[in-house]
């Protein structure tokens, strides 16, 4: 088991840069997903009215396992649009 860190880590993704409304579709990038050892992030679709529910077209990245972040900052270095911030 991974030890709890004192003080919580905060990870935010700027959806205006990466996501359904952003410049980048995360499905074409996936750099943060691959770079993070744990991995902390999840790639998932967003449910949007009128979208094909069997083949959705809106995707985004969400930090899910935030408590496992080692604060290595590699995701920040690798993100082409600076969409990620990690703080504590």
């Amino acid at each position: 088991m991974i030890a709890v860190r004192k003080g919580k880590t905060k990870i935010l993704i700027d959806l205006s840069k990466c996501g359904p409304d952003g410049d980048i579709d995360p499905r074409n990038c996936t750099k943060c997903l691959k770079q993070c050892d744990r991995p902390v992030f999840h790639l998932h679709h967003v449910i949007v009215d009128g979208d094909d529910s069997w083949d959705p077209s809106y995707w985004q990245v969400t930090p899910v396992y935030i408590s496992q972040c080692t604060r290595c900052m590699r995701c920040i270095d690798v993100c082409p649009v600076n969409a990620i911030s990690v703080s504590w």
Partner: peptide, 11 residues
């Protein structure tokens, strides 16, 4: 919600 609840699970 699982997202972010890891801290809780670890206490």
């Amino acid at each position: 919600k699982f997202a972010g609840s890891g801290y809780k699970l670890q206490t």
